[in-house]
């Protein structure tokens, strides 16, 4: 994985601390072109990996990318699925069964239904696989080396302790997409325990990691301890805690932590993109120099 991953929250009016800012972003990124232009800026700044939800608009961005294969030759997307609001709104409107019917392609569900619940109860894994395929369709022809399970779903399954589903997801992503499965969570230590308990070793886990302990459930200390003593490939997100920590200070904290392989951040302006990436590179340099001094 690249050291710096470019995120997509800013494109879809996801702002954890201000509704006003999220509306401004929604106006700024009204056109798909505006999103792609910002992705291009990130690529020019050396950020070749875009981590994004399977939002409907990403499908259109992918269309634009496919039109210019030479420009995006070394470009990678890390999809994060599912785009939960799509399903949550659908469950509110259509109910659980209606939602499955809506999103499972073809007559798969109705044919299962005819067979009665006996067949159905054996085939939840197939339903999950079909849903993954439906979400992945938009990325056809684009390099997707890591595929993530979105935090609402990861954490829902985690609370319900549905371990086998994690394993089924993990196996399917490797088998079908020849990609590495990743998990986004707001509960890193607990998730790592659960994944290890079903035999998933050294998992890729993307989680809130920041200097003020924001959304580090279970406590900052436990996170730091987990990163120091356990085997995992962590991706730090919400590094700025929604803007509560100045970028330089925020980045220095995460760069100092062991086992944080990548840092994910999103930004709308060229200045913020280049500034934050520069802070990360500087901090990395500083810590690697320190390490060299200590070991020599």
């Amino acid at each position: 994985m690249d050291r710096i991953l470019f995120g997509d929250n800013q494109f879809f009016s996801v702002n954890h601390i201000s509704d006003e800012k999220s509306r401004a972003q929604s106006i700024k990124f009204k056109d798909d072109r505006a999103i792609l232009n910002t992705i291009d800026i990130a690529i020019n700044e050396g950020l070749g990996t875009f981590m994004c939800t399977t939002h409907d608009r990403i499908a259109r961005i992918c269309d634009l990318i496919r039109q210019k294969p030479s420009a995006y030759q070394d470009f990678r997307i890390y999809p994060c699925m599912p785009y939960a609001h799509k399903y949550a709104n659908s469950v509110t409107e259509l109910g659980v069964i209606g939602t499955i019917q809506q999103y499972i392609p073809g007559g798969f569900f109705s044919s299962l239904f005819k067979g009665g619940t006996a067949i159905l109860s054996k085939d939840y894994t197939s339903i999950m696989e079909l849903m993954i395929d439906a979400e992945m369709k938009m990325f056809k022809g684009i390099d997707t080396p890591v595929i993530f399970l979105q935090n609402v779903v990861t954490d829902l399954l985690l609370g319900l302790n549905m371990k086998e589903v994690f394993l089924a997801y993990y196996d399917y992503i490797i088998r079908k997409y020849n990609a590495e499965p990743g998990f986004i969570t707001m509960n890193l230590p607990k998730l790592l325990d659960t994944l290890e308990s079903v035999g998933i070793k050294n998992p890729i886990i993307c989680s809130s990691i920041n200097k003020i302990g924001f959304r580090m459930s279970g406590g900052q200390e436990l996170y730091e301890h987990t990163l120091k003593t356990r085997k995992l490939r962590a991706i730090a997100m919400q590094v700025l805690a929604g803007g509560a920590i100045p970028a330089k200070e925020a980045v220095e904290y995460v760069c100092m932590l062991p086992n944080v392989e990548s840092i994910l951040f999103g930004a709308s302006s060229k200045q913020n993109i280049s500034e934050t990436s520069a802070f990360i590179r500087e901090a990395d340099k500083l810590y690697s120099q320190k390490e060299t001094l200590l070991t020599s």
Partner: peptide, 12 residues
Amino acid sequence: YVTDLTEAVDFY
């Protein structure tokens, strides 16, 4: 901001 005003939870 809610980041300063909300207490952390054990499971999010």
